[in-house]
Simulated scan of single mutants.
Amino acid sequence: MGLKPAIMRDVPADVTSMRKVLGQKLGKQYAANPNVARYAFVLKFPDGVVTGRVVFHALGGIPTPRGPMLLAGQHFTVEAMDLAKAEGCERILLD
């Protein structure tokens, strides 16, 4: 099963916009970052476990230089979280 994310560009970082983009479940987990007014890219992964390999491939398809990015999904492996952190991405995941 592929976990190719939906990629949205130029998304306002307010709660209302994020709930529209991420859906109700993930949108509830979003807390606005006062340092970000707009995300250059929001990557929403389908339900399932997101591995480091999937994150690596997803980020490889995004042009550089990159602005603020947000990754959203149900479950991320430790490797996926570390890679996202190294790339400066914010993360939203379900509890």
Results as ranks from 00 to 15, higher is better:
A31T: 12
G67Y: 04
G88Y: 04
L26G: 06
V49N: 06
D95Y: 00
K85T: 10
V55T: 01
F41L: 03
T64N: 04
M18W: 07
R38Q: 13
F45T: 12
F76P: 06
D14F: 09
F41P: 01
L94F: 01
H57K: 10
Q24N: 11
R66S: 08
A40K: 03
F41N: 08
H57T: 08
V36Q: 12
P34N: 05
A6V: 14
R66W: 01
Q74T: 14
E79K: 05
R9H: 03
M18D: 05
F76D: 00
K85E: 10
H75L: 10
A84P: 05
L70K: 04
L3G: 13
G27F: 01
G61Q: 08
T51R: 14
A37F: 07
H75R: 15
A6P: 08
L3T: 01
Q29Y: 15
A6R: 13
G2C: 09
F45P: 02
L94I: 11
P5M: 06
L59D: 02
I62A: 01
T16Y: 03
G73M: 09
L22K: 12
A72G: 03
G60R: 07
G27I: 08
R9G: 00
L3E: 07
A32V: 14
G23Q: 06
D10M: 13
V42Q: 02
L93V: 02
A37Y: 06
I92C: 04
L94Y: 07
Y39D: 02
A84S: 11
G73W: 06
P63K: 01
K20I: 13
R38K: 14
F45S: 02
N35Q: 13
F41R: 04
Q29A: 11
V54W: 04
P5R: 10
A40D: 13
G2R: 08
N33D: 15
V11D: 05
E90Y: 00
R9N: 00
P65S: 03
D47R: 15
D14H: 05
A40F: 04
A32R: 05
H57D: 14
M81Q: 14
A84H: 06
L26K: 07
R9P: 00
R66L: 02
R38H: 15
T64I: 10
Q74E: 15
M8S: 14
R66K: 10
L71M: 05
L22V: 01
E87F: 03
N33Q: 11
V15W: 06
A32W: 01
G60D: 09
V15P: 07
